[in-house]
Design a binder for these strands. Sequence first.
DNA 1: TGCCAGGCCCTCTTTAGGGCCTT
Length: 218
Amino acid sequence: MGKFTAVILDFETTGLSPGYGDRAIEIGAVLVRNNRIVDRFQSLMNPGKRVSGFIEEYTGITNEMLAKAPPAEQVMERFASFIAGHNLVAHNASFDRRFLDAELSRIGRRRTGDFACSMLAARRIYTNAPNHRLETLVSHLSLQTDGVFHRALADAEMTAQLWTAMIGELKETYRLRQVTFELMHSLGGVAKKAVPAYLERVAAGRTCACARGGRSLG
DNA sequence: TGCCAGGCCCTCTTTAGGGCCTT
């Protein structure tokens, strides 16, 4: 696993909380290596329960589509192999992390990679964005889009573009030769006001970019 | 059918409340 490798993923689900019985209905993910997408994963999955009209409307994924989809357990077995050994990224990662861990738990598998959050990083890097929803950031940064939102692979691809754009932004602004997953991950734990000073110290080679719990940094 | 959560972050804060983000 190289320093520049990560799987960027997105779940569509029946709702907001796996703790209240919500399930994943679609997974989309891209494997990014050296800021390029080198592999993709996408599948609907049958959650064994009906989805609400709101979710059908929000995602465009219907109960009819899910009835024909493979069981979630079968899809998650394949996905567990796809992410094996890789660090992970998602937009509002705490949401996708809960669903990933819940679905893996159902098949007796566990995640090994760290999870970084593109939303937390974006809040620190794009402080002037109108808000930090994925759709807004795609528009704000003029990222390439086919106009599809709230489908797993489309959102994962846009999150990947956002991720590489942020890496480019840090490289340019702070003249960093490389921006690792660990640095992006650590950024989510640095207090907003302390971010510029933190990155200046990283650029000067005086800070371990692997540090977490960095609210005291800077 | 409709309902539900949780982590982060700011501030009119820390013995708290509420907005943001995800489906």
